[in-house]
Amino acid sequence: MTRLEAVLGDITTEQVDAVVNAANSALLGGGGVDGAIHAAAGPALLRECQRLRETTHRTGLPVGDAVATGAGDLPARWVIHTVGPNRHRGQTDPALLASCFTSSLRVAREVGARSVAFPAVSAGIYGWDSAEVARIAVAAIRGDTDATGGIDLVRFVLFGRRVLADFEQALAPASGSGPD
């Protein structure tokens, strides 16, 4: 059974097998989590992303998909890049957001990762409400045992207390007598 937890912290310092990067489709760095991961990982990460753009992902990474690279100077072994939907561009389908989490876990499993740290993909600059991201992420991960098979730990590493509270609420056991 995969353990899910939420912590306040800096994803670039996580001692996990893989960290998930809330990337843009170009895969070449950006702002927010993407910029922080690229800065902490150093030039090796950018070189790997450039190789992806020259070979398997010439047109970039589609929204909802995921791809792995090495992690450069990060404590993690891999970076799993995923592109979240951007509400400001009309990308409002919750299934696209859910796919970011399940696709990332499938890729993590393929490379042999057993522990994975996620940011709040699409919250922030991409316009999704963090409570909605939390609900969708937790439901997607809990609902897809194929994606989580072999993954021991999923840790949501969140930058702000409000976002942490949203994820803690989404992770809390359902109240009432109905099923979870």
Rank of each mutant, 00 (worst) to 15 (best):
D34T: 10
P75L: 00
S177H: 13
G112L: 03
L8S: 07
V157A: 09
R58D: 03
P94K: 04
H88L: 13
I151Y: 00
V63F: 04
Y126N: 14
L52S: 05
E48V: 09
R3W: 02
G70A: 08
V33M: 08
V116W: 08
I151Q: 00
T12N: 02
S175F: 01
F118T: 11
I11H: 08
P94A: 09
N86S: 12
A18I: 05
A76W: 02
T13C: 00
Q15E: 13
D144L: 11
G176D: 02
R162C: 00
V121Y: 13
A22W: 13
R142N: 02
D129C: 12
L74W: 02
G29N: 08
E54H: 10
G31Y: 10
H57S: 05
V111W: 06
L105F: 06
L45E: 05
S99I: 12
R109T: 09
E168G: 01
F159H: 14
R142V: 06
T59M: 13
G149V: 10
A44S: 11
G178M: 06
A18Y: 01
A113S: 12
R142L: 00
A18S: 12
P62V: 06
G150S: 08
R51W: 11
R51D: 15
H88W: 15
A44H: 05
A140C: 04
E110D: 15
D65C: 00
D73H: 00
V138C: 03
T55A: 08
A131V: 08
A98V: 11
P85M: 03
S122G: 11
L28A: 06
V138A: 05
H81S: 07
R53T: 05
G127S: 05
G30C: 11
T56E: 12
S103V: 00
G32K: 10
T13N: 08
A66C: 12
E5H: 08
G176R: 06
S130P: 01
L4A: 07
V138K: 12
A76M: 05
Q15G: 04
L28S: 12
D10R: 03
L164H: 10
L153H: 13
L74Q: 00
G60S: 00
A36T: 07
Q169C: 04
A6H: 10
L45A: 01
T145F: 01
N86T: 10
V157E: 14
A41F: 09
S99N: 12
